[in-house]
Nucleic acid binder design. Structure first.
Lengths: 241, 241
DNA sequence: CCGACCATTATGTATATACATTATCACCAA
DNA sequence: TTGGTGATAATGTATATACATAATGGTCGG
């Protein structure tokens, strides 16, 4: 049994409804009491009931239809929140010391492959950086990054010796949109050497592309040896978990 | 330039603030106008401004402190929404015909490994199912699943020949909490045979555990040949994307 | 100089009210 | 039976108001 101390009315109503949905007492398709009825049940105003139901609808737990009422939604795709931490924080949470090594860094005019990775239309300069993130003395993750100098010209002056490109960009271009693609690949010869693993080892690969309103920012490929790392994504009907 | 038709006042204020945060015009730490000022700017009531800021705070874009005001938050972990579709839908979105084959199905008293996977404390019966999801004529994904019969006794009567275990459970136990663990592994000999791939091929593995209020429901391990599949997780500052 | 106290200020929650929007349903006429 | 038409019922959005809560900052006394 969950104990709620000092819950506001809003939280109490929200919790009660969530509990009934999650427990199966109100299965998908079941009609939830109308706002006016809820208001009467809890002896509150309709606005309060409305805000609760609006929030439930935003979190996807219920669907609302004018004139018909509110209904428990069909759970569709299992959608979960994936927290991708900064690599430095990740390493430190393993109680290992973090460092990074810039293995290669070059500027060039974008070739066809670069344009596709960054979704660039016109010709532009890009910065190509390869760097290795270390946990203790061992390689932890390989980072292969492309930065669009049209969007982030300040990057050209940066060596990334003291700050890793990811951290630097996060400070420079906060709150941009991103798309992550997660897959598994076998380590090729060059990757195997850089990560100090055997060729063919299964690796978890995250390819992230980031945009700001000014245009494409960066495209990064993070390669983790599969036996050393896993991503965790959680889902809780209420929202946070 | 984004064109907004018929936007409500709420959406307009929200969009304006988001735009200024995302563009960097208001960097992390910057103080957002007080509710009363916002209300004056947009010629609306404080309640409307309050709802907008409350929503921005819930989505993590701003932080609110009593007496001090509201501030643009520091972007911490890149958190993204991972949409894990049902396998059938996933296959069909590739324009391939879907089918599944139940390869093994057995009931037993939970052994030590089972108890750990399901986080069971007492001894209980479990159902162990291995099934292969096919896209066209080729294996697409291997599913190794454990179902707690204490929580879902109806599963014992089900053969899962016509409905896959995942789909069946989604209908039976809606809106439960889940934790997904994503990693990369090399295919072992048995997995390689079942998926018709070479031994050692890199595979993407999703291990999902699901709970209902009544207790642990199921633990499933989905193995995808790495070159045939990827997960996509998106992040947009506003919320949906 | 320093700490206790208190007024101020901004957010947090809730109410009562108003009007807009939109499916649905029932009724009525062709 | 069919099709339109308008009343109705539910949600959607916004306002004005009230009081609670909590942190800040200044004042005053020791």
């Amino acid at each position: 049994m969950k104990i709620v101390r000092d819950a506001t009315l809003h939280q109490r109503i929200l919790g009660d409804i969530e509990a009934r949905i999650v427990s199966g007492e109100w299965p998908p398709g079941h009609r939830i009491p109308f706002e006016v009825d809820l208001a009467a049940d809890y002896n509150c105003s309709r606005m309060t009931a409305n805000k609760v139901l609006t929030q439930l609808a935003k979190s996807g737990l219920i669907e609302r239809r004018k004139k018909s009422g509110s209904f428990v939604a069909q759970p569709r795709a299992q959608s979960a929140v994936l927290a991708i931490a900064e690599i430095e924080a990740e390493v430190q949470s393993l109680r290992l010391s973090y460092s990074h090594i810039v293995h290669a860094r070059s500027k060039r005019r974008a070739n066809a492959a670069d344009k596709q990775r960054l979704e660039l239309s016109e010709a532009a300069s890009v910065l190509d950086i390869t760097c290795i993130h270390q946990a203790g003395a061992a390689p932890f993750c390989l980072e292969e990054r492309l930065i669009s100098l049209a969007t982030v010209p300040e990057a050209e002056a940066e060596t990334f010796d003291t700050v890793s490109p990811g951290t630097w960009l996060l400070k420079r271009v906060p709150w941009s949109a991103a798309e992550n693609r997660i897959s598994a690949v076998s380590a090729g010869a060059s990757v195997a050497i850089l990560l100090d693993i055997e060729k063919g080892t299964a690796c978890l690969v995250i390819e992230r592309r980031t945009w700001s309103p000014a245009g494409p920012v960066t495209s990064v490929r993070l390669t983790y040896p599969g036996d050393r790392h896993a991503l965790v994504a959680k889902f809780a009907p209420g929202g946070e978990g």
